[in-house]
Computed example of a mutant assay.
Amino acid sequence: MPTSTSRSQVLNLAILGYLAQGPQHGYALRKALNLSLGTFRTLSYGSLYPALRRLEADGLIESHEDPKIPGTRRKRITYSISGAGHDYLDNQLSSAGPSDWEDGTFDVRFTMFSSTDSATRLRILEGRYARMLERREALVLWADTAARHADAYVTELANHGLDQVNAEVQWLERMIEEERAIQKPTPTRRAPRTPQKGSQKEKASQQGTKATGGHQTTSREPIKEN
């Protein structure tokens, strides 16, 4: 599970990723995070707005107060990513480490794959794949231990987790194969070699040979009579 610090960093990355698509209000931003990212399904305004204030204090986002809507007391604030925020986001998306293939963080990084280069995407997918293989091995051991102790419910829970991991492993294998195909260079075909053109003298010689039926002729000077 991500620590509070890493969760805060993931939330910052997710906010910047969404604001890079265009300015948004806090309500729309929270809704997008809740619907699209499993890590933030229970994200509250009490967590979102402090994160927005921190990002603004760091100069990574900007806030703009909208004109007051008639009949309402509250003013709506629109948030947008700054130039420094774009630079920070680009730097984050071009790198990858072990935390990026953990639960939650992987989901956020995957939603930003369209803005991530192919080499970094492949590294994250391969890291997640290795993590899932480790998890599958642990679940197999857990299920085997539960079966030996004749605990049907624990065995069922372990097998349920194993089914989920196996499904993700298969999905990751497909994604990795597709990503490697993108990186594989397309073989270039060599153009057929064209015969080099001969000199004008050779051409003239060949034409002369054809004109005489394949026999070369030489010019003779007329014999002078004494």
Rank of each mutant, 00 (worst) to 15 (best):
I182Y: 11
L11I: 07
D151H: 10
D58T: 01
T42M: 02
L60Q: 03
E225T: 09
G97M: 08
P185I: 00
E221M: 14
G208L: 13
R109E: 00
G208Q: 12
Y45G: 15
Y88I: 00
A51N: 06
S99W: 05
I81G: 01
T5K: 13
F106N: 01
G17E: 07
H160D: 15
L122Y: 06
R54A: 13
Y49T: 09
R180T: 01
H160K: 14
T72L: 11
V108R: 00
L16R: 13
L122P: 04
V140R: 04
R53D: 13
D151L: 05
E179N: 14
R73L: 15
S4H: 11
A191W: 08
S95L: 09
Y153M: 12
V169Q: 00
P23S: 05
G97Q: 06
S205N: 06
E137V: 08
K210L: 09
A150S: 12
R76I: 10
Q9K: 13
A51H: 07
E102N: 08
S199N: 04
R41I: 04
E178G: 07
F106W: 10
R135V: 10
R121A: 00
L29I: 12
S99E: 06
L162Q: 09
S8C: 02
S199D: 00
E65T: 08
R109F: 05
G17T: 03
G161Y: 11
P187T: 03
S205E: 06
E56V: 03
G46P: 12
H149T: 01
H160G: 15
T217R: 10
D107Y: 05
T188F: 06
A150P: 02
S47H: 11
L13Q: 12
K31W: 05
V154L: 15
Y27A: 14
L172W: 10
L125R: 02
T188S: 11
R136N: 05
T78H: 08
H215G: 04
T209Y: 08
I61T: 03
Q21N: 14
R135F: 08
D100L: 09
L48E: 02
L139Q: 09
L89T: 07
Q200E: 14
I69N: 06
H215P: 00
L11E: 05
R193T: 00
R174A: 13
R121Q: 13
R148G: 11
N34D: 07
R76N: 10
R74H: 11
L29W: 07
G127M: 01
G38R: 09
Q21Y: 06
T155W: 08
A147L: 06
E225Y: 15
I124S: 01
R41H: 07
T42N: 05
F40I: 04
S4Q: 05
H25V: 02
L125Q: 02
E179V: 08
H149W: 00
H160V: 02
G198N: 01
A84T: 03
A158K: 13
H215I: 08
V140H: 10
P98M: 00
M112R: 02
R128E: 00
P98A: 02
P50N: 01
A138I: 06
A181N: 12
Q92H: 13
I77M: 12
E137S: 15
Q183S: 14
K224E: 06
L52A: 07
Q200M: 14
G208H: 10
K68D: 05
V10P: 01
A211I: 04
G83Q: 12
A191G: 08
P67Q: 05
G161K: 02
